[in-house]
Amino acid sequence: MDNTLSVPAPKRRSSLGKLSPSFRVGGVIVLLVVLAALASLARPLQDPNRANFGKQFAPPSAEFWLGTDQLGRDLASRLLAGAHNALYVGLIAVGIGLVLGSLLGILAGYLGGWLDQIVMLGLEALYALPALLLALLLAAVFGPGAFSSMVAIGVAAVPAFARLARAGVLAVKAQPYVEAAQALGATSSRIMFRHVLPNILGPLIVQASLAFAGAILAEAALSYLGLGTQPPTASWGRMLREAQSYLAAGLSPYPSIWPGLAIALTVLGFNLMGDGLRDRLDPRAKT
């Protein structure tokens, strides 16, 4: 059975063989979440916002695979829609952190001098304001919502990316190929983004995967507090917020159980993928 696999593309197989088990497990989980998010767009189940009165708090059944919530809405369908929301918020937030952080880190590391000092000081100050605090501030000003929470999570992720990028640039800056590019008269921006950036991407990609896990957790927490995604959009954190009082009253545990498991599984997937990527892409890191 197995030898049929090894024949067609030996080169690819050998590189796949190096991927650690944690990357494979994490990758499969992430793939499942992505598929769930895509599937939600096709609406394979009921509309996630359709209320079924008279069928509130139904246990899992053939009609409602995972049961229903306090409005009789299909939990399975809401869970899929929640995957879409989580990945959307995570993608934007990590995008903000990655782009802004890498840019600041590369500029600070490559140009050095007072710019470096100022950027580092700014990052130090940002460290004192984690995502939740930024989100509280933004919600106080602009009102709570998915936008505020995405910006807060993204900005809070900037320092980690910037530090990694800066450290990478400092290590790469003295390499002969950078010197060669400088001698050839390449502009600073060309050197930074054509020569330096590709060589420091590894750790940044690893961090992106780990930051994605953090963003999913943060989004869930913010939505749970009422600061993130607003109703009726299905969000895992928001679902837990709405389910809580019914759980405490002993009505139905299902609306409280599934979203938490979905969050945990997704976070686990991105964490494992990040760990696996680190073994592969970040030669300096120890396993």
């Binding site: 837990l240 389910a243 002993g250 409280s256 979203p259 945990a264 599984l265």
Partner: peptide
């Protein structure tokens, strides 16, 4: 450790309410 990193603490709190209080 893996679980502790992945489980949202507020959800664990909800489950504790269900188990220990309800």
């Amino acid at each position: 450790a893996l679980l502790g990193l992945a489980l949202p603490s507020f959800w664990v709190g909800l489950m504790f309410i269900y188990l220990f209080a309800v």
